[in-house]
């Protein structure tokens, strides 16, 4: 499983970084989304891969911590998901506004000089 997971993280981030370096705003926004998936999965995987052990504990009694997945990376990623949505929205609006005021969708607000 670790092989698959790390390959997934690697390829998601590679695609994201490649798009991040492209000249068109839409490419960059897609790149940022892919990169945020990769980063979220990366942080999530810090708690190791544990199928079938969600951190929902019984009411009362002794809690054997080793029987559950690590809740902390999950809590971190949960807020990260919402915040990355917010930043995507912000970037999208900047993209629309920049397109409206400059007439181009190049990240620099003007086409590359040849």
């Amino acid at each position: 499983m670790e092989y698959v997971m790390s390959a997934a993280i690697g390829i998601l981030s590679a695609s994201g970084i490649w798009l991040l370096l492209r000249p068109r705003t839409f490419q960059v926004i897609i790149g940022l989304c892919l990169l945020s998936y990769a980063v979220n999965l990366f942080i999530f995987s810090m708690g190791r891969l544990r199928p079938g052990a969600p951190p929902v504990i019984p009411k009362g009694g002794f809690v054997d911590a080793t029987a559950y997945a690590d809740p902390l990376p999950q809590a971190l990623v949960l807020t990260a998901i919402v915040i990355s949505f917010a930043t995507t929205a912000l970037f999208l609006v900047v993209m629309i506004a920049s397109r409206g005021s400059t007439g181009t969708d190049h990240v620099d607000g003007q086409e590359r000089e040849q």
Binding site: M5, S6, A7, G10, R48, I57, V63, A65, T66
Partner: peptide, 30 residues
Amino acid sequence: SGLGIAGIAYAIMTRPVISNVGNWFLANAY
């Protein structure tokens, strides 16, 4: 960069888990 991130992720995932703050949260959440 992707290769690097994949490598780091794999190296950490295959390490044994050490006792961390997550355990405290599990034990005390209720």
